[in-house]
Design a protein around this nucleic acid. Sequence first.
DNA 1: ACTACGTCCTGCGAGC
DNA 2: TGCTCGCAGGACGTAG
Length: 263
Amino acid sequence: MPELPEVESIRRQLEPLLLGHHVTESDSHPSDKFTPAREIVGLGFEAVLRRGKYLLFSLDNGTEMVIHLGMTGQLMPVSDLSDPHLRAWWKLDNNVTLGYRDIRRFGRIRICLPGDYEGTLKKLGPEPLSDDFTIDAFYASLKRSSRKIKTQLLSQLPVAGVGNIYADEACFHAGIYPGLRKLTRSKTADLHHSIRQVLYSAVENGGTTLRDYVNVEGKQGRNQQYLACYGRDGLPCINCGELLRRTVIDGRGTTFCPTCQRR
DNA sequence: ACTACGTCCTGCGAGC
DNA sequence: TGCTCGCAGGACGTAG
């Protein structure tokens, strides 16, 4: 499940591969989720940007290609166009073919004008590692809703780019039970700090590979060896030794420490 | 307007 | 060993 750190790792590797190059040929899976990929033949890449979990490719006709990797999306040079999981590909003028692989097809590709977004991308909260992500704004945003804290984080509204792994990690490090609906200002500040710390470290570590994530070079991330909470249910908490427990919050698997993260 | 839940999609692992 | 079945989850659609 590519979240901000994984998407940022991919963005950094795609940038030198694509900048200044043009698409000479393209094709895609017939689903509406992927057919817009075909619309950029003849266009050149002017920038490779990221907002939350979205990759934004600035094109030289003033439009933008937006890719969300969903659960299992991968972007990398490919040579085998008959790969059954290949959902789109773009042949470039530098003899590289960029491929979009997506086993579960939860990802999507769109073309739009920069800033003219729809859905979640339009309502996306601030970038967690930027100065726009302030404790004040975070506190105000969380206060507006009565949904569970973890559900709010996954909604992308209070802050962009947090998914299931880093939501659990951030709540764990902040000592917050993710099923709470209200946080004090002090605990909100703790969570704000944990989100930044967890995401910053994960970017430094090249992302988290649990199953499907690989970067543009096909290599796994290293952050999975530093996870304190996610996927560790039944193992001892690194802070208190209590066994971590797994529950379901609004349909999403959630791991937490019953001692450190009190309800 | 807001919350909760179902849906998409496929591979994998548990269980028989 | 080989099969079935349920689970995993990001964003979106729908129901209440």
